[in-house]
């Protein structure tokens, strides 16, 4: 997970932001409770979004309690408390994806960084083992994603869609897990909700992969690393429009799929993420990308 799925605070109401922040803090607390207080450092916005989606589906609304930040006792926080597995699932996804990301980093980094990663690896491995015992399907999905990603990148005929599929499939499977694990609110039906969420997850995953690739474009071009926008199928002119079109397309599909779900308690925050925040994040990356490309060309 890469932390691209955030909310746009300027366009949220105060109560909406509080509700979101309450989920963020609750996930941090859950990581501390299920794994270790240090696991709070791997908390990501993507997993917070996943937790919010899960809580949005739940029959009973979460209860918001006052508390203090675990890392700063002077700061007051709201904590969303839920009887469902929503936070526990999101915490498991956080530690499992952090572990595999670490393995990937060890593989790709220079020696001095590799030493640091190796030092923290046993902690991550322990958390991952614990999470995998509870939710083996999450561990299987994330591991499968990395394996498929490697084989897609090695394929000489790799296309953008092939490269984006492993991340998209993983998030799709993660979202499809929710209706089975959480008692759904009225009038949601399990099979229908599963299909919708699976599609939302697929296109959000695709968007995350592509926005990360756009972010890394210049770095990969210099270092010769794999990037789906550097494939021969990508157009040589109008690259910026091509990238923007691909990102918009993934977001549109996620929005169209989400639109089929009956609105829940966090609808306005989820719409803020899909319609405002993601667009702003991708625009920022594309505009910086423009400057960088011009600089390297000059």
């Amino acid at each position: 997970m890469f932390g691209y799925i955030k909310v746009d605070r300027a366009n949220l109401l105060g109560k909406e932001y509080d509700a979101y922040k309450g989920i963020y803090c609750a996930l941090c607390k859950q990581l501390g409770k299920d794994y270790s207080i240090f696991a709070g450092f791997i908390l990501s916005y993507d997993c917070t979004f996943y937790a919010m989606l899960a809580l949005d589906l739940a029959e009973k609304p979460p209860c918001y309690n006052d508390g203090r930040c675990r890392f700063n006792p002077f700061k007051k926080c709201l904590y969303a408390q839920s009887e469902t597995k929503a936070l526990s699932l999101a915490a498991a996804l956080s530690v499992i994806s952090a572990y595999y990301k670490l393995l990937d980093n060890i593989h790709d980094s220079p020696w001095y960084k590799r030493i640091a990663y190796r030092l923290i690896q046993p902690f991550f491995a322990g958390w991952r083992r614990k999470a995998a015992e509870k939710y083996p399907e999450i561990d299987r999905s994330v591991k499968k994603m990395l394996d498929n990603q490697l084989s897609a990148e090695r394929d000489p005929g790799c296309l953008l869609d092939m490269a984006a599929q492993p991340t998209a499939d993983m998030l799709s499977e993660m979202c499809a897990l929710l209706p089975d694990n959480i008692p759904l609110r009225e009038p949601l039906k399990i099979e229908r909700t599963k299909r919708i969420l699976s599609s939302v997850g697929y296109y959000m995953g695709r968007w995350i992969y592509l926005v990360d690739a756009a972010d890394d474009y210049n770095k990969d071009r210099k270092s010769g690393g794999f990037n789906p926008f550097l494939l021969s199928s990508a157009p040589s002119d109008n690259l910026k429009e091509y990238i923007e079109g691909s990102l918009n397309h993934a977001l549109s599909e996620a929005l169209l799929s989400y639109g089929l779900l009956d609105r829940g308690r966090y609808d306005s925050i989820i719409m803020n993420v899909l319609r405002v925040s993601c667009v702003n994040i991708q625009n920022k990356i594309i505009s910086e990308f423009d400057i960088d490309t011009n600089n390297t060309e000059n």
Partner: peptide, 20 residues
Amino acid sequence: NMNARRAYTNPGYNTDTTGM
């Protein structure tokens, strides 16, 4: 339809009026 999605202007979702 594809072009509308690539511009993020989905009918009925007001996506074209958001932003800054």
